[in-house]
């Protein structure tokens, strides 16, 4: 039982880490692009917003028949979790960039910094707390949604939950639910701690 649980926690973590990492790699550049091209950028945001509104079990069902991506297993689960993780990271990164006062950007340009330098040295550091907050939301919700992934055979703590539900065994249910909840709380705390470390001047210009 214990070794089985460790195995399931491990599977769960893999689903979450891979999905959130991939979503971060896509959402942050997409957010920078959307921020610089507000017209089409709004469309990108709308699109990820729509994905967010589809219930997860329905999305699994919708994508299951797809070739390459579909089918039972972790691959599809990670893809769906990735789609869900996109929005909070995208939205928070755009928000973080938009909240930078125009005078800061103007002075950076006037000082002869290139757009790339402004992004690296000024914009991303100033948006960092907001971006980390997005990662926190994405990670915590992905830990929760990943329990549903067991329904399509992707493993993880959802396996115990579904088994517990089917057999009406409280112990099994708790064995799945408690670690998942603890993982979510731990991730939340970790990211809050990072946010605290990163938050610089509380004063806005």
């Amino acid at each position: 039982m214990t070794s089985n649980m460790i195995q399931l926690i491990f599977e769960h973590l893999i689903l979450v880490v891979v999905a959130v990492a991939a979503a971060t790699a896509v959402a942050i550049p997409a957010a920078i692009w959307s921020y610089r091209n507000p017209g089409p950028g709004a469309l990108v945001l709308k699109l990820t917003d729509i994905v967010q509104t589809i219930p997860s079990l329905a999305l699994f069902g919708l994508l299951l028949p797809l070739p390459l991506l579909g089918g039972i297993g972790a691959k599809l689960a990670i893809f769906v979790l990735f789609l869900y993780a996109l929005l909070p990271i995208l939205r928070n990164t755009i928000l973080g960039l938009e909240n930078i006062p125009a005078a800061i950007r103007e002075s950076a340009t006037a000082l002869g910094m290139s757009p790339g330098e402004i992004l690296r040295e000024v914009e991303l550091p100033l948006a960092a707390t907001s971006i980390i907050a997005g990662l926190r939301i994405a990670t915590v919700t992905t830990i929760g949604t990943a329990t549903v992934a067991a329904a399509i055979g992707a493993g993880g703590l959802g396996v115990l939950l579904y088994r517990g539900l089917a057999t009406v065994e409280t112990e099994l249910l708790l064995a799945g639910a408690l670690p998942a909840a603890l993982l979510a709380v731990a991730a939340d705390r970790l990211f809050q701690w990072i946010e605290g470390k990163l938050s610089i001047s509380p004063q806005q210009h």
């Binding site: 006062p101 005078a103 800061i104 002075s107 001047s201 210009h205």
Partner: peptide
Amino acid sequence: FVSQHLGLFPH
């Protein structure tokens, strides 16, 4: 260049 709002980098 210095503007009224200064635009100092807070970080």
